[in-house]
């Protein structure tokens, strides 16, 4: 087997045995509980609210796991020194990083698949309409989760778990505000403010590009060209972060 696959499968097994997928029970209870509550409270738009709520929950749970498992992917290996015996094997450091990343992506994929099934079951239960655009939204959420995982992994190659978590959360939050920053840059009179906000706009990922939940909730599809562009953007950013993580990891001492 290729070293990347061996490490990915081991990471996947680690995640399963760390009971990460237990969050699915929490997700299901949250979704069904909230939907029941909303069905009682709202008269007109409770189908839209259930859809909105479900997609938001899938997004939040996916991102939270990506951040908190992602920061430990490599950081924990270094802190616990398990990396010593791995690096002594005939594998390249790049293969190790990619294997760890793929292992978590496998976990997140299974996690998201189950969440989507629970979500669709909930919609069916409440007789809410199921549009194709829901899957578009889910696909873009998955791209965002891939990107956030790469962010967490990138930071964990050179700093502590706490700082990695802080940096990743910061980047995630700013990533959702880049359009606002662009607006500030356009309206600001100060050249310094313009320079700073423009830099942040171009350096940080524009995560709002990957957010079509609002359209999905009302059943308005997004053009496939947009979806393809947004996905490609997210995947390229992910690849850039992984390349950065590999370069840093390649150079560091243990």
């Amino acid at each position: 087997m290729w070293p990347v696959v061996v490490i990915a499968l081991n990471t996947f097994r680690e995640n399963l045995r760390d009971k990460i997928l237990y969050n699915l029970v929490f997700f299901a209870l949250l979704l069904i509980g909230a939907s029941t509550l909303l069905a009682d409270l709202t008269i007109m738009e409770h189908h839209r609210m259930i859809t909105d709520m479900g997609l938001a929950a899938i997004n939040v749970v996916g991102v939270v796991i990506a951040i908190f498992v992602g920061i430990g992917l490599v950081g924990k290996e270094i802190e616990r020194r398990t990396v010593y015996t791995i690096m002594a094997r005939p594998i390249r450091r790049t293969q190790f990083i990619l294997g760890k990343y793929l292992g978590l992506v496998m976990t997140l994929g299974v996690n998201m698949a189950v969440m989507v099934i629970v979500f669709l079951a909930t919609l069916w239960l409440y007789r809410a309409p199921v549009h194709g655009v829901l899957m578009q939204a889910v696909a873009l959420i998955f791209v965002e989760v891939l990107l956030v995982t790469a962010m967490a992994l990138f930071f964990s190659t050179f700093t502590t778990s706490t700082l990695s978590a802080s940096f990743t959360i910061g980047m995630f939050v700013v990533g959702h505000l880049t359009m606002d920053l662009k607006g500030i840059a356009e309206k600001s009179q100060s050249e310094t403010v313009k320079a700073v906000t423009n830099s942040v706009y171009y350096i940080f990922p524009n995560l709002e590009m990957l957010n079509v939940k609002a359209q999905a909730a009302v059943g308005v599809g997004v053009p496939y060209a947009y979806q393809a562009t947004a996905s490609l953007y997210g995947l390229l950013y992910t690849a850039a972060l992984l390349v950065g993580a590999c370069i840093i990891f390649q150079r560091r001492d243990f």
Binding site: E14, R17, R81
Partner: peptide, 8 residues
């Protein structure tokens, strides 16, 4: 003082 993957 090795520390290994303790879930295995």
């Amino acid at each position: 003082s090795p520390y290994f993957y303790d879930y295995l």
